[in-house]
Design a protein around this nucleic acid. Sequence first.
DNA 1: TAGTGTGAAGTTGTTCACAGCA
DNA 2: TGCTGTGAACAACTTCACACTA
Lengths: 212, 212
Amino acid sequence: MPQIPRPSARRLSLYLREVQLRLRDGAKRVSSKQLGEALGLADTQVRKDLHWCGPFGGSGVGYDAETLRDRLRSVMGLSRTWNVVLVGAGNIGRALVGYGRFESEGFRIVGIFDKSKSLVGRRLAGTTIRALADLPRIVEEHDARIGIIAVPRESSQEVADILVKAGVRGILNFAPARIDTGGVPVTNVDFSVALEQVAFEVTMSGARGEQP
Amino acid sequence: MPQIPRPSARRLSLYLREVQLRLRDGAKRVSSKQLGEALGLADTQVRKDLHWCGPFGGSGVGYDAETLRDRLRSVMGLSRTWNVVLVGAGNIGRALVGYGRFESEGFRIVGIFDKSKSLVGRRLAGTTIRALADLPRIVEEHDARIGIIAVPRESSQEVADILVKAGVRGILNFAPARIDTGGVPVTNVDFSVALEQVAFEVTMSGARGEQP
DNA sequence: TAGTGTGAAGTTGTTCACAGCA
DNA sequence: TGCTGTGAACAACTTCACACTA
């Protein structure tokens, strides 16, 4: 069985978002050309990517929007609900629980944890902030497979160790550091790197293309 | 003059971070091997990337850490201060101003803007939240070249138009939408896409490598 | 010896060109 | 005709192999 290349995988998320949007607007079908235009990609690229959903649909008239959505969800592992634990109730943690979009995409935050004694016991978006010591229990109780690290750099590795030991199978890391997880997949989101990227592009300006 | 490929550009940020860290720890020299290990990359890769800083330093003993930092900064356009305007004082906006790391990297938030009447006039991290109408003036006054979009999807394109019209030269977009800027470079950060990426990797688990 | 610099080879991802279907 | 599916050509990026230097 062939592996979906990472660049494609990233784009599949974008296709899914776009298809859902169009479904909400009442669309019944979507073509690779439409998707490409909406996302700034070549239509060929879109078709190649969508092929990971197993050749289907399309004939001379585009993809059936609902089927496409379902296939995308299923191929990306989004047809189940993912229970998620969040470590760090600081600025980023708060932004995340307030983000809203997660719920609708099938992610459920089942535990929020923080080191700080002054935060533990307080509530955040309806969930009580717990001490890190409770993390393994909550992970097990809810079979949480994903952990989010939203703590400062200094504690990020330590938190990663706790998460891995507790049994999470994937980590979303907002700390500006590479973390070592012994094989558990990590996706990094780093605000500074992103801003620096913008500065870089501005400096180089003119020459290169746009967004992914 | 050859263009720095985007993948390299992303990694340059990471090298810079790592070098700064090591400098703080008192290191005088850094080798490609050390950098590679710290970041999960092959040493060859590191050397190829660093070559964009112009062949220099290294001999049989690694790169001079200070020189490397300076070259990285300069090549990435970080030897100047970048004035930045932030649109959106919601959860993400607040997380960003509270992030702290920006200042030290040479980014200065010179204006925070929001549509909401109830937020305008309030202060956030020492800066008064202004109405969007003031944006062009502030951008001009401070020669702000970078804009950050931290508003909901629905208003993101509108905000982008305002920013572009005001003259910013690069945009960091946190809204879950592709925005059209007519050539102004955009870097996207999308929490949902990132989380979905994790779900995807977990689903595929085992097979693929780690982080960038 | 421990490390850089770099062409050449290899791999991966993207675009092109076109066959085929409704 | 409008669109999908896909091999083949192409471009981009990464890894390898090795010459070279302090």
